[in-house]
Design a protein around this nucleic acid. Structure first.
Length: 387
DNA sequence: GGGTATGATTACGG
DNA sequence: CCGTAATCATACCC
């Protein structure tokens, strides 16, 4: 049961609501019970009367009031009566418009009673103390790590965060990282970007919708509570808390949106950027650079991290692609040296020529170094470039 | 369409 | 974590 209602239930002498779960140790409640036990007509009758009237009015919903005044009309309850955000709102917001005269009269009389302000503030105080002692401790919850993860991912994928420019740049970066050379797959690439933009658009429009709904609902509830706070002890803190509850609810809805957006992006990624499914051969220039390095370091074809980075940069591929390439190359070369002889000779000649050119340009100081001296068998070639 | 080339992935060992 | 070997899945070429 909502603790606000519990308080009211504890206070109301009418016992309109079940009180089974109210702790007997509650000093406030004990005090109220003692008050209830006072026989009517005694000095306390004045306050008791007011209490009864306040509770009778504020605790029953408008429907009930109407039902009491117009018993012919069967009221239809569509929300829990103890939910102040919904049940109380069934009529609170429009109170005063079509209320029965008797009801309005009683309400007015109550509001004008000389004891009302004092009683009201006492009730507020009691409620505040109780509510804060019950709930105050667990008020501030830390930011949800799950939602932070989703936020980060959406930001990284360019779905949330800066619009268009930054977003597609991030997408392009992601595509380049997962794809191959920069000048291939432009069709898939633009297709991917279009789909990502679509997801982004849906995400933002949904998010906006949620935020709008949230603020509308918050305003609605706040208005209702403010309206009710004239006859019911509702402190600003409680309104604040209710707003926080609403925001939590809406943020959990937002999380679902974020989650499904992330899923959509992941599916899109795997569809478009799974390099294994959409394998592209490296372009000619890249293969040439790699082969040149491989055959000129045939004795030890294991590029260092720096060398890999350099090659990756030169070829427009990632370092891990360079590693893959060298891994494949080594094993395939070793497995069938014969098949690679021609290629080996080609690149041997090539590098020799290049080296010669370089050394010639460098004042012909020292002869080109021949790095082949171990590890993998060197290609044997005749002076005319053939086996 | 089938064979081959090739980039990526996986299992495993050191 | 890196390299090897086997394998997968696609690209490419005839």
């Amino acid at each position: 049961m909502d603790e606000q209602t519990r308080m009211l239930a504890g206070l109301t002498p009418l016992g309109a609501l079940p009180q089974a779960d109210v702790g007997e140790s509650d000093p406030v409640r004990k005090q109220q019970q003692q008050q209830q036990q006072q026989p009517l007509g005694q000095p306390q009758q004045d306050i008791g009367d007011i209490l009864q009237q306040i509770m009778a009015i504020t605790d029953e919903s408008l429907d009930e009031a109407q039902a009491r005044c117009w018993p012919a009309e069967a009221p239809m309850r569509w929300a829990a009566p103890d939910d102040p955000a919904l049940g109380g709102g069934a009529g609170g917001g429009t109170a005063g418009a079509a209320l029965p005269l008797d009801f309005q009269h009683r309400k007015h009389a109550l509001n004008c009673h000389r004891m009302k302000p004092a009683l009201f503030s006492v009730l507020c105080e009691i409620k505040e103390k109780t509510v804060l002692s019950i709930r105050g401790v667990q008020e501030e919850d830390p930011p949800d790590p799950q939602i932070m993860r989703l936020d980060n991912m959406l930001l990284a994928e360019g779905v949330s965060g800066p619009e268009k420019g930054g977003g597609s740049a991030a997408a392009a970066a992601a595509a380049a990282a997962a794809g191959g050379s920069p000048n291939d797959g432009s069709i898939e690439h633009s297709d991917y970007r279009a789909k990502l933009a679509q997801i982004r658009q849906i995400y933002h429009s949904e998010l906006e919708k949620y935020e709008q709904a949230c603020s509308e609902f918050t305003n609605h509830v706040m208005n209702l509570l403010r309206e009710q706070s004239r006859t019911r002890p509702i402190s600003p803190k409680e309104i604040e808390r209710m707003v926080a509850i609403i925001h939590r609810k809406f943020s959990s809805i937002q999380m679902q949106l974020k989650q499904s957006t992330c899923e959509a992006v992941m599916i899109l990624r795997s569809r478009f950027l799974d390099a294994r499914r959409k394998r592209r051969n490296f372009n000619k220039q890249a293969t040439e650079v790699l082969n040149e390095y491989f055959y000129s370091h045939l004795s030890n074809p294991y590029p260092s991290e720096e060398a890999k980075e350099e090659l990756a940069k030169k070829c427009g591929i990632t370092v891990s692609q360079v590693s893959n390439w060298f891994g494949n190359k080594r094993i395939r070369y070793k497995k069938n040296i014969g098949k690679f002889q021609e290629e080996a000779n080609l690149y041997a000649v090539k590098t020799a020529v290049d080296a010669a050119n370089v050394s010639a340009q460098a004042s012909q100081a020292n002869s080109p170094a021949t790095p082949n001296s171990g590890g993998y068998p060197a290609p044997c070639y005749t002076p005319d470039g053939r086996l």
